[in-house]
């Protein structure tokens, strides 16, 4: 399944709607996100941030607006990459899975109604951070990242897209993993 295509389209959607997948994961890689290595990216594998950066205006005078070259330069060389992803090999056959399911007393499989009601309640939750003006179709996670940490948002998006292209995971499987993580942490967003 074409995960990369999906992610690209999500980025395109976010770009048009003013949001963007964003984040701070790259803080680990880039402790000084505004001024890092300024050497230009030379490989053509990872898409440049300009292709995925949202056009969302940042509140004037609040946060520095970094251009795409600066955002891109924040990525260390090993992330910008010079090679290609290795092919995914077949499993060699590891330890047997001794359980088909999950044994977690916190999971409460029967609480299906609670899961659905939790998601509805989450829509009315009040954010702890001021949300920029948006339209109902805007991804708020991306919008917050784009507004408050635009450079990191660009780097995050570039990293995510590179992963999507290289891994090319089945999007249904991918989102199933994501669902399990959110369910485990009781995150209804």
């Amino acid at each position: 399944m074409p995960a990369a295509g999906l992610v690209r389209r999500q980025y395109s959607a976010a770009r048009r709607s003013g949001g963007l997948l964003a984040g701070v994961l790259l803080v680990c890689w880039c402790p000084a996100p505004t001024r890092c290595d300024r050497s230009p990216a030379t490989d053509g594998h990872v898409r440049r941030p300009a292709e995925i950066v949202s056009a969302t205006p940042v509140p004037a005078g609040v946060f520095p607006v970094l251009d795409e070259a600066e955002a891109w330069a924040c990525l260390p060389a090993r992330v910008r990459g010079t090679g290609t992803a290795p092919p995914r090999s077949s499993p060699a056959g590891g330890p047997a899975v001794d359980e088909d399911g999950l044994r977690d007393p916190d999971w409460r499989p029967a609480d299906w109604a609670g899961v659905k009601s939790g998601m509805e309640a989450q829509k009315a939750r009040r954010s702890r951070i001021a949300l920029p003006a948006d339209d109902p179709a805007t991804n708020r996670w991306g919008l917050v990242g784009r507004t408050y940490q635009p450079a990191l948002a660009s780097a995050w998006a570039a990293c995510t897209q590179a992963f999507a292209e290289e891994a090319d995971q089945d999007p249904v499987f991918e989102q199933s993993v994501f669902w399990i993580v959110t369910r485990t942490k009781q995150c209804f967003y």
Binding site: M1, P2, A3, G5, L6, R8, R9, Q10, S12, A13, S17, G19, G23, V24, L25, M119, Q122, K123, A124, R125, R126, S127, R128, I129, L131, P136, A137, T138, N139, R140, W141, V144, G145, P171, V181, T182, K185, C187, F188, Y189
Partner: peptide
């Protein structure tokens, strides 16, 4: 990580599918 950010800021879930209309290529 993304879940931690969403929870930390208590981002409210959007009322519509913000990914709608963008099926995989």
């Amino acid at each position: 990580y993304m879940t931690c950010v969403a929870d930390a800021f208590q981002l409210p879930l959007e009322g519509t599918n913000v990914f709608d209309g963008f099926a995989p290529a």
